[in-house]
Simulated scan of single mutants.
Amino acid sequence: MYITITAQKTDGNFSQSAADFVAYLEKENEQVQPLEMQYFFNQYGEQFSAEEVTEAIDKNTAKLKKREPKFYSITVSPSARELRQIEDNKNALKQYTREIMKDYAASFNREINGRTVTVDDILYFAKIEHQRTFKGTDKQVRENQPFANQILELKHQIRRISTGKEMGNIQKLQRKIRRLEHEAPHQQNGKRIVQGMKKEGNQSHIHIIVSRKDISNSVSLSPGSKYKASEVMMNGKKVKRGFDRDSFFAKAEKTFDKTFGYKRNYAESYRSRKDFLKNPKLYFSVLMGLPANEKAVAFKILGKSGVPILNIPTNKVQLAIKTFKRLKRGVDVALRSGSIGI
């Protein structure tokens, strides 16, 4: 499971409307027939249109300054293993979304009228998407880039020859291009992976747009708060503040496992990511100490994430000394790509 929370983008002052972001979330609907369109949903409703979502978020911004985000984006990306567990069931993904939004609300250290925040205080809309495209930051695109640069230069050369600006053999250059296309290290269905290409396989994920203000439009609920839990004096009263992302991520993982009876391997757990970041030696020690069958699954998960796992020493001390730097680079890549952890 990989979850991100991102503030509304800004180029100085924040846009006063969620229209652009909502339109971005409508991109898959541009390619399907009306009966196949995916609509927004929330805790209690279905089939909200883009216009209804934009209007609800835009109207819920009382007293927010121009330089304050009006909404946040939560992206929930189950792994291929997790999607197989629920058989990529759209209704199961909706069920999970509604459950983790309860976890989201519970992670606020806030009170509204003397009570804790609940999901009924959260104004949000969610949408399930089934496609992903390769980004310029993806490992496959980055490692293919030198080949892309050479191909582009050869195409420019062919264009110059075609217009008489340069002498040369076009057929020879075209053969070079075909060879480079084939030699690029990352291919999909026989084609060089490039930015914007659709990723094959199961890519279902969830986008959530959540208002900065509570549903009454009176209390600010920011998951971007730098405080986990604290109190501050405002108008002579103690006011709780803060959002515990660590708690939210941990709860979201437990909610999935409990809801769908998922047996989570250490290598894909939130605990493993924390161990890796805070105590790498402990991470590798636990990894090597797993039962044989669980260790095999862990290495398979890490291998698919691009972590170099061949010829790993079995002695824990030897592992920490000889392979730590090499493995750390690989796991860093996997964490950034969202392949493991949250």
Rank of each mutant, 00 (worst) to 15 (best):
Y2I: 13
I3M: 07
K9R: 14
T10L: 12
F14C: 03
A18I: 01
A19V: 14
Y24N: 09
K27S: 11
E28T: 03
N29K: 04
E30W: 03
V32T: 06
Q33A: 13
L35S: 15
M37Q: 14
M37L: 07
F40T: 07
F40P: 06
N42A: 04
Q43A: 12
A50T: 03
V53K: 09
T54N: 02
A56Q: 10
D58A: 07
K59S: 13
N60P: 04
N60W: 02
P69F: 00
T75M: 11
P78W: 04
S79I: 03
R84F: 11
I86L: 09
N89T: 06
K94V: 14
M101R: 10
D103A: 09
A106Q: 15
G114Q: 03
T116I: 14
Y124Q: 05
F125D: 01
F125I: 11
F125K: 06
K127Q: 08
T133P: 07
R142N: 02
P146M: 13
I151S: 02
I151W: 07
E153T: 12
K155F: 09
Q157S: 15
Q157A: 10
I158H: 02
R159M: 09
T163C: 11
K165V: 12
E166V: 02
L173Y: 14
I177P: 03
I177T: 08
R178F: 08
N189W: 04
G190S: 08
R192D: 01
R192P: 08
V194W: 03
K198Q: 15
K198D: 09
Q203W: 04
I208P: 06
I208S: 08
I209V: 15
I209M: 02
V210N: 10
S211K: 04
R212C: 10
R212G: 05
D214H: 04
D214L: 01
S220N: 12
S222Y: 00
G224N: 05
S225K: 04
S225E: 10
Y227T: 14
K228I: 11
S230W: 06
E231D: 13
V232M: 11
G236D: 04
G236A: 02
K240P: 12
R241N: 06
G242D: 04
D246V: 12
D246L: 07
S247A: 11
K254N: 11
D257F: 05
T259K: 09
T259A: 12
Y262A: 05
A267F: 07
R271K: 14
D275T: 02
L277S: 08
K278I: 04
N279F: 07
V286Y: 03
L287H: 10
G289N: 11
G289Y: 02
V297S: 07
K300M: 09
K300N: 12
V307I: 04
I309R: 00
I309P: 00
I309E: 01
L319T: 08
T323V: 15
R326K: 15
L327R: 07
R336C: 12
S337Y: 09
I340C: 00
